[in-house]
Amino acid sequence: MTETAPLAHVSCEPPAPYEPKIVGFLCNWCSYAGADKAGASQIPYPPNVQVLRVMCSGRIDPEFVLQAFRKGADGVLILACHAGDCHYKEGNYRAIQRHRLLLRILGQFGIAAERCRFDFVAASEGEKYARVLTEMVESVRALGPLVLER
């Protein structure tokens, strides 16, 4: 009986899947609370999104998003209160306007719109938060790493 030794130079492990790096800008009152709700409900989602908390989605300077892509983000997620729910009344409307503008700028850089997603997550929407994050990670994973020409 002969043992067949595995070929030393061929790895049997599949290559590690590509894990996108995503920055999430979340408003404090709805979306960050929604993220906490997902936690309290222990709904699992991929850990690819690092969250930055701002008081209002209206605080999110488009420059932050551009900077995130420049520094190495494969995707940026902007989450705000639903229309009419903004703690500061109108900040989320500003965020919507700025996001539209951002998509045009990103397009000029050749950055796909799917890499910069805007969505609404309420404080009660833990499940939606987990779903949006999962979708975002998957869609950016499908796009692959962002390579910017310099």
């Binding site: 008081m55 209206g58 605080r59 488009p62 932050f64 900077q67 703690h87 500061y88 109108e90 500003r94």
Partner: peptide, 27 residues
Amino acid sequence: CGTCVAACPAGAIKGNHFTNQQILAEM
């Protein structure tokens, strides 16, 4: 809320405790 901070085209407004420097460093 900081909406004015993000809106200022001259970058003249500072949002205390949520300054550009703080947020960018965190990112």
